[in-house]
Design a binder for these strands. Structure first.
Length: 376
RNA sequence: GGGGAAGUCGCAUAGUGGCAAUUGCAACAGACUGUAAAUCUGUCCUCUUCGGAGUUCAGUGGUUCGAGUCCACUCUUCCCCA
């Protein structure tokens, strides 16, 4: 993997670049749609490629390990072979499930024991085991196994959790280095900064992560309950330390405004379930604000869903029709909302990139930011 | 014509003496950030200074401290037999 920076913003840390992988190039800043179980929910791959033009999508180690399981994934030739996606893939390690499935797991030094949410069976995830699974899934970018601690963790817990994540990282790196990719193309391992909302822990973690000299670095444990301003502050603290010549990935974030604020602070990669999940729940993101398509006000609005979008469904279908589909619980409604939102997210980062290259990112951001949070 | 059953807040339901009244659907809003989410939460008779207040269970009258619930009659609907 290689990362080229094409243009850096003078006033702040925003930059435009390209990540080169064996499955193709990823322009940065980039948004990566989440495809937890090997599928971006409600979105066909043709739309993902042609309308949305996703450059890279995620899969999840924990979910794919449980279903379809490692035998199937290996036999299929990894996730690329299994779902037919030929562009880059990134796998989250299951570290987020340590957080989100907190009622069904137990953390120890050795690793984390999960109780399957599907059948209740018990599974031990160790850093070594996670590396082995991520090799089998075969994503271009593998994430280290970490603990994503809750946003309201006290200092004592945050420190303890961060130190465990660091020790797990040592073991991830060792296993990663002593194993080879299974399918003939390169895989990168990204370590993850933790430290909750505590600047000194974040600094300490960023320094530790940077010392690993990985091909890219991630910031985890944000947007998990802490105030947005705290998140921005933590990004600044961490990005002052993480190497400039490696891509920086802010995990699990976020709203359109979060993306622009992250880009301004030097983040190159984002992923979030928000465009897909909120889409399925009837919320549309647009350049002029959000639309709750369930609201009665759209019942007879016979305008295209988004005249500025290049996605076919945004031109062909009207807001009134989409309102009807969602109210009638038609599957097509979920598809259209998901495609629309992802198209918008990819448009937003593409615009950000172009404005960085053109040298007017700050002015562009100042203009669009207030629009994004309006409610239409 | 004879016999039987039933009418509850949009619809459907629960309630057999202490009830502004159960539940589901619908409706109307809100939430959602490395996906246990096509999910979840709230409102849903009227008014409200959110403490309450006022009117309700087909209609009228009655019994009772108290009636959606018991009694009488009226209206309406459904089923069975002619």
């Amino acid at each position: 993997m290689k990362f080229d920076i094409i243009k850096e913003n003078k006033k702040n840390n925003a930059r435009a670049g390209v990540i080169h992988t064996d499955h193709g190039d990823i322009p940065t800043p980039i948004f990566m749609p989440v495809g937890t179980v090997g599928s971006v929910k409600a979105v066909h791959q043709r739309e993902l490629r042609e309308d949305i033009d996703a450059k890279i999508i995620l899969g999840n180690t924990y979910h794919l390990y449980l279903r379809p399981g490692l035998d199937i994934l290996r036999a299929a030739g990894g996730l690329h072979g299994f779902n037919g996606w030929e562009r880059p893939l990134l796998t989250d390690s299951g570290g987020f499930q340590v957080f989100s499935l907190s009622d069904n797991r137990k953390i120890k030094e050795e690793g984390c024991t999960f109780r399957s949410h599907i059948d209740g069976s018990k599974h031990l995830f160790t850093p070594e085991r996670v590396m082995d699974i991520e090799r089998i899934i075969g994503a271009d970018i593998m994430m280290a196994f970490d603990e994503c601690a809750p946003g309201d963790s006290d200092y004592r817990y945050a420190k303890k959790s961060m130190e465990l994540t660091h020790r797990w990282l040592d073991r991830c790196c060792q296993r990663f280095n002593e194993t080879e990719p299974l399918y003939g193309y390169h895989q990168s391992l990204f370590p993850i900064v933790q430290g909750c909302k505590y600047p000194d822990l974040r600094r300490q973690s960023a320094e530790y992560i940077a010392s690993k000299n990985a091909e890219g670095n991630a910031i985890g444990g944000l947007a998990v309950g802490e105030p947005t301003e705290v998140m921005y502050e933590m990004i600044e603290v961490v990005n002052a330390i993480l190497p400039k010549d490696k891509p920086r990935y802010l995990m699990g974030v976020g709203t359109p405004a979060n993306l622009l604020e992250g880009i301004e602070r030097g983040v190159d990669m984002f992923d979030c379930v928000m465009p897909t999940r909120n889409g399925r729940n009837g919320l549309l993101f647009t350049a002029h604000g959000t639309i709750n398509i369930k609201n009665k006000k759209w019942e007879s609005c016979f305008e295209p869903i988004d005249p500025e979008s290049h996605a076919e469904c945004d031109q062909v279908y009207t807001l009134a029709y989409l309102h009807h589909l969602i109210k009638a619980e038609e599957i097509l409604g979920l598809q259209i909302c998901s495609i629309h939102n992802l198209t918008f997210y990819l448009w937003l980062v593409t615009q950000a990139r172009q404005h960085i290259i053109d040298g007017d990112f700050d002015a562009w951001k100042a203009g669009i930011l207030p629009e994004l949070s309006r409610r239409l």
